[in-house]
Amino acid sequence: MSAEYDIAETLDVKGASCPMPVVKTKGAIDDLAPGEILEVLATDAGSMSDIDGWAAGTEGVELVAQEEGDDVYKHYVRKTE
């Protein structure tokens, strides 16, 4: 069951561990236009807290949602500016 978001890009960081999910998310969001949403697929259990914290502490991004799937953690981040 996946939420309905208008996803501009999907970043697959499955297998990567700290700090790469956050670092690669930052790189991918830089390539988006304001308003667009990035989907991040990760297997790192720490990514739930890390991407939440990163989005809260970083200007120009907003965490739209996070979902914990069977094996994959899904993060939806909007670029706001």
Binding site: P19, V22, V23, T25, K26, W54, G57, T58, E59
Partner: peptide
């Protein structure tokens, strides 16, 4: 260092 860079 890399994480802080991701934070700007």
């Amino acid at each position: 260092a890399s994480t802080a860079a991701a934070f700007g």
